[in-house]
Design a protein around this nucleic acid. Structure first.
Length: 210
DNA sequence: TCACAGATGGAA
DNA sequence: TCCATCTGTGAA
């Protein structure tokens, strides 16, 4: 584990997904794999606000169903919800709120801080701005896979989140979420949060970079 | 049982 | 613009 790292207590993750998505900006996502330690500062998040949010994977579900991919979302906040998208890429989420709310925060981009050489090897590029500039990319860079599903991020194991940098409100920009056009009215909710002006945002964010 | 769209990324 | 390639979902 990195020295002087402070993990967030359970209570931090027990707020609603929208508040948590904002609060996670600037925090450090760390993965300690066999190849070495990789970490990055969270620059872009999206809130998925539970079973009433038409864009959320738990939409319309009122309870957990065994062996379903969203099962972990029905636990209390602070666990890792990871899913495979398009049959190819992994996406990393943090479960939010109280048990049964089924909310989560998708981590969409990181500013690489540790293990850049390892990330470059895994990603096949030396361009530091592109190592973690998307939800699938950051999972590949950090070595996060479905095997990490359900990890408790409140304890320092292989995968965890640590307090790092506080981001002031005037450095935070919110926009609609990416690629949720199918969700009707929910597609326009301002549930995406980015560190304004960061060079380390997802490609879809480029128009907001300035 | 089956068709199909999806919280993406990389190549053409 | 297209494709890789897997899973949940809803229709048949």
């Amino acid at each position: 584990m990195l020295t002087d790292l402070q993990l967030f207590p359970r209570g931090f993750y027990m707020s609603g997904a929208v508040a948590l998505a904002r609060a996670l900006l600037g925090a450090l996502l760390v993965c300690e794999s066999e190849d070495g330690l990789t970490a990055g500062r969270i620059t872009e998040t999206e809130a998925y606000a539970g079973y009433t949010d038409a864009a959320c994977h738990s939409y319309g579900r009122t309870r957990k169903r065994d062996r379903h991919r969203t099962d972990i979302m029905f636990e209390r906040g602070g666990y890792a919800y990871i899913y495979l998208i398009y049959g190819i890429h992994n996406c990393f989420n943090v479960v939010a709120n109280a048990p049964g709310e089924a909310e989560a925060v998708l981590i969409r981009a990181l500013e690489p801080t540790e293990g850049v050489d390892i990330m470059s090897r895994r990603r096949g590029t030396d361009d530091i701005e592109k190592l973690c500039s998307g939800p699938g990319k950051l999972c590949m860079a950090l070595g996060i896979t479905l095997a990490d599903y359900g990890t408790d991020l409140c304890s320092a194991g292989r995968l965890y989140i640590a307090r790092d940098k506080d981001i002031s409100d005037d450095s935070v920009l919110s926009t609609p979420r990416i690629n949720v056009d199918y969700s009707g009215e929910a597609a326009s909710y301002p549930y995406r949060f980015v560190i304004a002006g960061s060079r380390f945002l997802s490609v879809k964010t480029l128009p907001y970079k300035a």
